[in-house]
Computed example of a mutant assay.
Amino acid sequence: MRQFTAVVNPAAGGSSGTAGLLPLARLLREAGAQLDTQYSRSLEHARQVARQAGEQGHVVLAVGGDGIAGCVGGALSGTDTVFGLVPAGRGNDFARALGLPADPSALADLLLNGTPRPVDTIQVESAVHAGVSVLGSVYAGVDAVANRHANTSKLLRGAASYYAGGLRAVVGWRPAEYRITVDGVEHERRGYTVVAANSGFYGFGRNIAPGARLDDGLLDVVVIQHAPKRLFFAMMNELKTGAHLQRPEVEILHGKEIRIEADRAIPYGADGEVDAALPVTARVQPGALRVLC
């Protein structure tokens, strides 16, 4: 029987992340599993708890949204620890990419009996992040600005905070001159954003990179080039279905190591957290994390 340590973001979804764990915890314990619950005081504290639990042979669960998922999963990248995810945040985009069931009974069965699957992670290198690993994507541009607005919104929650944040970001956006180096080949582009995607989803279910696969050893690089802002707003709706890929302003590149630079200190985000600025390098780490999915 597996032993679990749940690392909980107590502020997930704008409320208590515990609510997402309670029905699952009951099912795991009824099945005979041991479950230790730890509440994170910070991202660094969450990483420490995750690594210590992994060293004890526990399955480590991240309870919350994409921030805690990326933090805990990234901390376990390159280890033999088995990682599980209990989606309880606003976006839950990595859980969406993994195809995790929403029903607590189905999720409990997966965590108790599922076979771990190796998936890729992303190593991030910048002035702020030195060798930090994340799970879903690294994105630099108007979407990072939008996500920062969404994360700091006190009035709106869920999808509404992302839409409002996106509107505010686009209205104030000035086109950036990007230099994107993909496996040593430079591409100069002017536009809105560059996304190095391991997972196809970000920003509350937007399918930014429909072709991205979690286990192919590659990053899908989505470049949204300059266009009138009215077209960009239309493109935001198309991100739900992947229809944006048909637009000439959208370019897809593929590579293992991506460096993103710009003509100014544009913010970048990773797995929902935005706390740094370009330049940044994203490097795929094939099969680095064992996930129950």
Rank of each mutant, 00 (worst) to 15 (best):
G78L: 04
P116S: 11
S137T: 11
E257W: 01
P101K: 10
G17M: 07
R41E: 14
S161C: 11
E273N: 09
L111I: 10
L253S: 02
L167A: 15
F83V: 10
Y163T: 14
N198C: 01
L167F: 15
S15Q: 10
A11G: 02
A95L: 01
P10R: 07
P286G: 08
A160E: 13
T79I: 07
G141T: 10
A234Y: 01
V222M: 14
G84V: 12
F201E: 02
D109W: 11
S126D: 04
G54C: 11
L239K: 02
P175T: 07
T152W: 05
S40Q: 11
Q38V: 15
T181H: 03
G203V: 00
D271A: 12
N207H: 15
A160M: 09
G269S: 12
P228H: 07
Y268P: 05
E188K: 09
Q34P: 07
L292M: 03
R179S: 13
F233P: 03
G84E: 11
A164F: 13
V145R: 08
A75M: 06
A227T: 09
V280F: 00
Q3H: 13
I208F: 11
D271W: 13
S105Q: 15
A196F: 00
V280T: 01
S133P: 00
A159L: 12
F201V: 04
E188Y: 05
Q225P: 00
R174T: 14
R47A: 12
H58A: 14
I258Q: 03
A97Q: 01
Y162E: 10
S161T: 08
E251C: 07
V128A: 14
G165D: 06
A31W: 10
H45A: 12
Y163L: 15
P286S: 09
L135R: 01
R213C: 14
D271T: 10
G14L: 09
S133V: 00
S137H: 09
F94W: 04
V49I: 12
G20W: 11
R96N: 02
A159T: 07
S42A: 11
G211P: 06
L98Q: 04
D271L: 12
P10S: 05
V59M: 01
A169Y: 03
V185D: 06
L28C: 09
I122Q: 03
